[in-house]
Design a protein around this nucleic acid. Structure first.
Lengths: 220, 220
DNA sequence: CCTAGAAAGATATGA
DNA sequence: TCATATCTTTCTAGG
């Protein structure tokens, strides 16, 4: 997965190198970093407070929101320290946190900007690394499988776990499925009608399950 | 505008009084505070790190996301200080920030959870006040909250998750299985020989998987 | 959330 | 086919 860094972020390059984050330098227009369509803007706390004062922050948030479905505004530094040397009040800073998360275009269709406070540039690089890793793994989203904790796991529990891995199926439905079809194989080979006939599974869930079972991802 | 506070948040009551935020005490199920349909959960940094360790944080984030289009997880305290007295590594903490912002339901339709770090309970109360004020003013266009356009969870990921639910199969093997068979259905209907022929799956694992797939647990 | 290390199993080799 | 050694992956426990 490509990880683009704006050439002006040269202070961060050595840290990226040090912590083994592979990147490509570019001249980026709207953000300092882009990973997989997600924009990241890095600001020191001083920068942040200044932009807040001049009103430039609003524009930048708008740009991020306009250009990315999801973007991060990473504020690097210790808040209290930054506030000491700034004319901005603590109150105004906190209000800005509220404002940035609520702000939207009138059509409500713009992207979410998430403001993150990180203490140091090291933290920031770890943040980038974690983001890069998560996105590469596609792990952002996989639902946790509720594995059975006990040491001795029965086949019945294992089968249930497999069935619970389908979207929209939790323990109760899994039990009903297993009761109705008897085995994983029979469940997988069930028709859409059969799936719908399970108590607690409606047509939407049935459809989703059915599609997932049959969907082809290539293969030999 | 109604501002509901859970009765367990009594430590915050005096501060709310002091700073003139009008509220009503309730027994709230899914959040500590609710303003205009927005849920707010307050956690000390210690709580946050503990929940992270036990995995409870995931459930709580899920609940927030499930119940509110927009919700805030407010972490109160100094991160560095919290980390000193915790078994969680700094890296783990930062990764958790990434994770929480990316977490979604598999259809991408759930609410956005915004994690905010605030240094003190005073800051937290200012945060509430600012939020209450902004929402009362209605100067922010809030709804509809953006829905993620593309599926955040691909079907491929879901299929992988299902396959990973089998004992002895984790990410690497799941990918190889999906690559070889192409779909869940073909995998489930594979012969023992076919299973064994997947790279990384020997006769022991193949046998276990095969038996689990075909084992009958009764059924109608 | 991460990391480390144990445990389990896969694969390669040689007889 | 089996025994052995080495390597990979999974999975759990601990931080």
């Amino acid at each position: 997965m490509k990880f683009f860094v704006d050439y002006r972020e040269s202070v961060i390059f050595p840290l990226l190198d040090k912590y083994g984050v592979p990147y490509e330098v570019r001249n980026l227009e709207v953000a300092d970093y882009i990973i997989d369509g997600i924009g990241i803007e890095r600001k020191t706390i001083t920068d942040y407070l200044n932009s807040l004062m001049t009103g430039r922050l609003n524009n930048q948030l708008y740009n991020l929101s306009y250009n990315f479905d999801l973007s991060y505004l990473c504020v690097v530094g210790y808040i209290s320290e930054g506030l000491i040397y700034s004319k901005i009040s603590r109150k105004a800073y906190i209000s800005s946190l509220v404002g940035s998360s609520l702000k939207r275009a009138n059509d409500g269709k713009m992207g979410q900007v998430v403001t993150v406070n990180l203490e140091t540039d090291y933290d920031f690089v770890f943040f980038l690394k974690a983001l890069h890793k998560k996105l590469s793994e596609g792990d952002t989203v996989r639902l946790p499988i509720r594995r059975v904790k006990k040491k001795v796991v029965t086949d019945y529990e294992l089968a249930k776990t497999v069935i619970m891995a389908f979207p929209g199926v939790s323990e109760i439905r899994a039990e009903k499925i297993l009761k109705k079809f008897g085995s994983i194989k029979k469940f997988i080979n069930a028709s859409l009608e059969d799936l719908k006939s399970v108590e607690g599974i409606g047509k939407v869930t049935a459809q989703k399950i059915f599609e997932l079972i049959n969907k082809n991802f290539g293969g030999d």
